[in-house]
Design a protein around this nucleic acid. Structure first.
Lengths: 151, 151
DNA sequence: AAATAGAGTTTACATTAGTAAACGATTATT
DNA sequence: AATAATCGTTTACTAATGTAAACTCTATTT
């Protein structure tokens, strides 16, 4: 009941639609169409197609309201973002996760609150930190193996 | 000379090939083929196609060595990862960058060194932190606007 | 020299994604 | 009632991706 559709692939174009739904909780196609006509310069047909595909793949729910539909998200934005962001980590060596996070932090503006919160999380993470993260890479796709022995 | 090809799209399948090249610095198609035959269960033709596409799009360099080629990466892994990981942040409200980072940290194993390094980065980020991160979302795609006025 | 194997290039083909027009059923207008 | 405006569904079409066979040299083995 929690992972209803974590692994469904939401494409870039579809994501634009999802954002409108997430932001408004309940929307009609009309609202989505006009928002994306604005932002993306899409013809209404384009948005309609995307809405249809999202309903089809279970990312959106529809509820008949008179003769039109009210769309609502079937997956939480947070979950979708999380699933999407984890894709990065399937592309790199686990040992580099820290470096990637570092680079992300460097690349973005954070608020004082953000920083404080992250510091707290890190503090908590210490309890579960390891001496060295395990490389899970396939042989030949990472050179960690070479770095193991001393020096 | 720095951003040679930051914006070139490397697909999931192509990335598998890149990892082999990055890990070995210099490789022959044979090595890539055998590594991915192992890991991905790909026919050699598949890997050949991918190698060809990557050379074509400038992600890989080739250097004739006798009658075969030596492949090497034309973009750094770090840069590629960075470019890829920034895609997440185009999908969310800037105000949530901190939350996403938080969730990433929670989801992964870090080493003591990682944590310490991240703490240092955060410490430095304080100098550039803002009171509140600006929402850059398009109207209708984010509800930040609503949260502005009190309560 | 002829046959075989290896390496890159071409061609192939199905699926997904981006973008949108056309169609059909309904409701709102004239 | 006839017509026009809506809204969802079907169909369309191109480009990108995943996956791989076939082809063409060239070098090696017999």
């Amino acid at each position: 009941m929690s992972t209803i559709a974590v692994d469904l692939h939401i494409t870039d174009a579809e994501w634009e639609v999802m954002r409108v739904v997430w932001a408004n909780t309940q929307v009609t196609s009309k609202e989505v169409i006009s928002t994306l006509e604005e932002k993306m310069d899409w013809k209404q047909a384009t948005t309609k197609t995307l809405l249809g595909r999202l309903v089809e793949k279970g990312a959106l729910n529809t509820e008949q309201e008179g003769r039109k539909y009210i769309y609502s998200a079937n997956i939480e934005e947070k979950e979708a973002v999380r699933s999407f962001s984890n894709d990065i980590f399937d592309r790199i060596c686990r040992k580099n996760v820290g470096n990637v996070i570092e680079s992300i932090i460097k690349d973005h503006t954070l608020s004082f609150d953000d920083i404080q919160r992250l510091e707290e999380i890190l503090e908590m993470k210490k309890a579960f930190a390891v001496e060295e993260v395990d490389c899970q890479c396939a042989e030949g796709q990472c050179d960690c193996h070479l770095h193991h022995h001393g020096e």
